[in-house]
Simulated assay, not measured.
Amino acid sequence: MIEVYHNPRCGKSRNCLAFLDNANQEYKIIKYLEEVPTAEELTDLLKKLNLKPIELVRQKEKIWIEQYKNQELTDEAIIQAMAANPILIERPIIVKGNKAIIAREADKIEAFFEGK
């Protein structure tokens, strides 16, 4: 089952769901602001995304700028920051098996499902 880390207030996230609906893909929505992923779950997600923790952070968020920007943070500290402040997690994220992408553009989503 495909999982989508979704924020209903985010246009890119809503567009991602619309793309999946139009492609007749079944999926499970994870409202990650309500169902906050643990540090362990984020670590697993980062492996599926093949990203470093800082690459998953929304670095323009006020919380990041005020509390974390310009600090030397370990990967573990960045993961803990995202677990404590899930608004920092980039969205939307599609997970299929052991692979995942940040699904902000339709062409990227399409390529993901075509295995490119």
Rank of each mutant, 00 (worst) to 15 (best):
G11T: 03
G11Q: 09
K12C: 06
S13I: 13
S13P: 12
N15M: 14
N15I: 02
N15L: 13
C16V: 03
C16W: 07
A18I: 14
F19L: 06
F19Q: 04
L20V: 01
N22H: 03
N22G: 01
N24C: 00
N24H: 12
Q25T: 01
E26G: 07
E26F: 07
E26D: 11
Y27A: 02
Y27W: 04
Y27D: 00
I29L: 08
I29W: 01
L33P: 02
E35L: 10
P37Y: 00
T38N: 04
A39P: 09
A39H: 08
E40P: 02
E41S: 14
E41F: 03
L42V: 08
L42I: 14
T43N: 13
L45I: 01
L45S: 07
L46V: 04
K47L: 11
K48R: 15
K48C: 08
K48H: 04
L49E: 08
L49T: 13
K52A: 11
P53N: 10
P53D: 08
P53V: 09
I54K: 12
E55K: 15
E55Y: 14
E55M: 15
L56V: 02
R58S: 15
R58F: 09
R58D: 14
Q59V: 11
Q59P: 03
K60F: 08
K60V: 04
E61D: 15
K62Q: 09
W64E: 08
E66S: 12
E66C: 09
Q67S: 15
Q67H: 14
Y68H: 14
K69W: 03
N70T: 05
N70C: 06
Q71I: 05
Q71R: 15
Q71W: 02
E72C: 01
L73K: 14
L73F: 12
T74D: 09
D75Y: 08
E76L: 05
E76S: 06
A77H: 07
I78F: 05
I78Y: 04
I79Y: 02
Q80Y: 01
Q80G: 05
Q80A: 14
Q80F: 04
A81D: 06
M82P: 02
M82R: 07
M82S: 11
A83K: 00
A84P: 03
A84T: 06
A84M: 13
I87D: 01
I89T: 05
I89K: 05
E90L: 02
R91I: 08
P92Q: 11
I93K: 02
I94M: 11
V95Q: 08
K96E: 13
K96S: 13
G97T: 11
N98G: 03
N98Y: 07
N98K: 10
K99L: 04
K99I: 00
A100V: 05
A100W: 12
I101D: 10
I102G: 01
I102M: 00
I102E: 00
A103V: 07
A103W: 04
R104I: 12
R104T: 09
E105I: 03
E105V: 06
D107E: 15
K108C: 00
E110G: 01
F112V: 08
F112Q: 10
E114C: 06
